[in-house]
């Protein structure tokens, strides 16, 4: 393949992913509102279009037309930069997540991932560790006490949970003996899903993912009853929407990471034994990937509307005294499994 072909193929993939991400992010907001209404026996937004299906577009237009207020005491450059960081981090993580096996389109062999880097998992870890800057800068630059408290809480929380997240991933990396997400998905052939092989790591990773995305029960950086709106108290208009979108984009990425690392990625157990033909198999596999992500997003929303918020000291205790030892235990467990079966 010439360089020009590689550039064009990558560009098409990026375009596809950005469009898909923007649409799924705004629709996950809609689904969150509808599912929360269903859980609380309300109706939810059902006026714009059929069953409120056009609600996301109405929301975006409303937010675009609103006045953008920057507080007098804020640090203006950082106040503007913070939402950009949040969105950039949320969207660029998706580059390394594989959506399907290698396929042949118009004679070109195309890997269904934007960039198959051999340190892909470390790339995701690096980017998620930067996500905290969007929130801390937003909290500090607003020049408001509520925002500052939200920002400080976010930095402490995300650092604490990154540790157990890293150790949970270590187990997966040991199983696949590779840091590339493509290789990790390939290693989970059949029913060898990491969620089944290493259940402790799966649980610690899912809980850390909730903490990293600041979703309830770990949404202390924006806890409404105590901090007004937390780090985004002083944001309005499209800058507020950027934080909002970044939160949902992070949720989708967390789901995609859980699927890739623990639920077999695009793999459907023993589908190649059925003899369905190459095209149909690939379609089912890509569909399975998105179905798994959808189920996890539903799980995220379900948890948010079922479990109350933790107190801050409880959050820190769980992070360091429960999650961290459990994730270490998982590393030992994987090592023992590898020793027995290799």
């Amino acid at each position: 393949m010439s360089i020009l072909e590689i550039i064009i193929i990558t560009f098409v993939k990026i375009l596809f992913i950005i469009t898909a991400m923007l649409l799924t992010v705004s629709y996950s907001v809609y689904f969150e509102r509808r599912i929360s209404a269903w859980i609380q026996t309300r109706l939810g937004p059902n006026r714009v279009g059929w069953e409120g299906i056009l609600q996301p577009f109405a929301d975006v237009f409303k937010l675009l037309l609103k006045e953008d207020i920057v507080p007098e005491k804020s640090n203006k450059p950082l106040h503007t930069l913070a939402p950009f960081i949040a969105l950039f981090v949320a969207f660029s993580t998706y580059a390394v997540i594989p959506m399907g096996p290698e396929v042949t389109i118009f004679g070109y062999k195309v890997n269904l991932v934007v960039a198959d880097v051999n340190i892909g998992i470390l790339y995701v870890l690096a980017l998620t560790s930067l996500g905290v800057y969007g929130i801390t800068f937003a909290g500090w630059s607003s020049g408001s006490k509520y925002s500052l408290l939200g920002g400080v809480r976010a930095s402490a929380q995300m650092i604490s949970y990154e540790v157990s997240m890293g150790f949970s991933i270590a187990g997966v990396v040991m199983m696949a003996s590779s840091l590339s997400p493509v290789a990790i998905v390939n290693s989970q052939y059949g029913w060898m899903w990491n969620a089944i092989v290493q259940p402790i790591g799966f649980i610690t990773f899912v809980i850390s993912a909730f903490a990293e995305t600041n979703r309830l029960p770990f949404d202390l950086p924006e806890a409404e009853p105590e901090l007004v709106g937390g780090y985004h108290t002083e944001y309005s208009s499209m800058k507020f929407a950027s934080f909002f979108l970044a939160e949902y984009a992070n949720m989708i990425i967390a789901s995609a990471m859980i699927v890739t690392l623990y639920l077999g990625g695009w793999q459907v157990p023993y589908i190649d034994k059925l003899g369905l033909g190459e095209t149909l198999t690939t379609l089912i596999q890509v569909g399975a990937f998105f179905a798994k992500i959808g189920a996890l997003i539903f799980f995220f929303i379900w948890v948010r509307w079922s479990i109350p918020r933790f107190r801050y000291d409880q959050l820190m205790n769980i992070g360091w005294k429960v999650m961290f030892p459990l994730s270490l235990l998982n590393v030992v467990w994987v090592a023992v499994v590898l020793m027995i079966f290799n």
Partner: peptide, 28 residues
């Protein structure tokens, strides 16, 4: 040096600087 590059971001930008900022913000 891919590994060093990513570790530079994870360790220094992602962990140590967050702790620095945390202290700077608390002291205000």
């Amino acid at each position: 040096a891919q590994f060093i590059a990513v570790v530079q971001v994870i360790v220094y930008a992602g962990a140590i600087m967050v702790l620095f900022l945390f202290v700077l913000m608390l002291l205000n």
